[in-house]
Computed example of a mutant assay.
Amino acid sequence: MDDFKDYLSKISDEDQRARTTKVLNWVHSEFPQLKTRIAWNQPMFTDHDTFIIGFSTSKKHLAVAPEEITITKFSDQIKEAGYAHTKGLIQIPWEKDVDFELLKDIIQFNIDEKIDATSFWRK
């Protein structure tokens, strides 16, 4: 998790920094086989050099980026959790709880789907 120290230190809002840290630590704890890195100025988790999930912050939400195909698959559950999404991002408002079960399902889906992937992004 040392990879994320600089990123986290730049989040000025203490509550947002604490929440982001909690989510990143949770991912690391639940999926210890995933590697951590900063790319495109955001914390990411990878498996055998393929992208699994990335995170970023904005004034209004924690953004979760699992790739478009994953968002499409989980669109209904994302909306049921009370989150908005675009093609590339799930937006978890700071005032809403993080649905860790949904996050776990999303990450596991990407791990399973990309088990034989040989590129960073899906093709």
Rank of each mutant, 00 (worst) to 15 (best):
F31C: 11
I69D: 15
A39G: 09
I11S: 07
R37P: 08
T57D: 01
S29I: 06
F4P: 14
Q77Y: 10
E101T: 14
S12C: 04
M44R: 12
F4D: 03
D6R: 13
Y83V: 04
N110Y: 05
A39S: 13
G54P: 00
L89H: 07
W121S: 08
Q77P: 07
K114E: 03
K5G: 00
D112F: 01
I11W: 02
E14R: 15
W94T: 07
T20E: 13
M44S: 02
L34T: 04
E67H: 00
K5Q: 08
S29W: 12
A39V: 00
Y7Q: 08
K59C: 06
I92V: 09
K73D: 09
D15W: 08
N110L: 01
T46W: 02
K79A: 15
I52H: 03
D3T: 13
I71M: 04
K35F: 00
K35Q: 10
R122K: 14
T70C: 09
N41C: 03
L8V: 03
S119V: 07
A81D: 06
F45S: 02
Y83P: 02
P32T: 01
Q108E: 13
I11P: 12
D105V: 04
K123H: 10
G88H: 09
K96F: 11
R17W: 07
L62W: 05
N110K: 10
S58K: 11
K5N: 09
W121V: 05
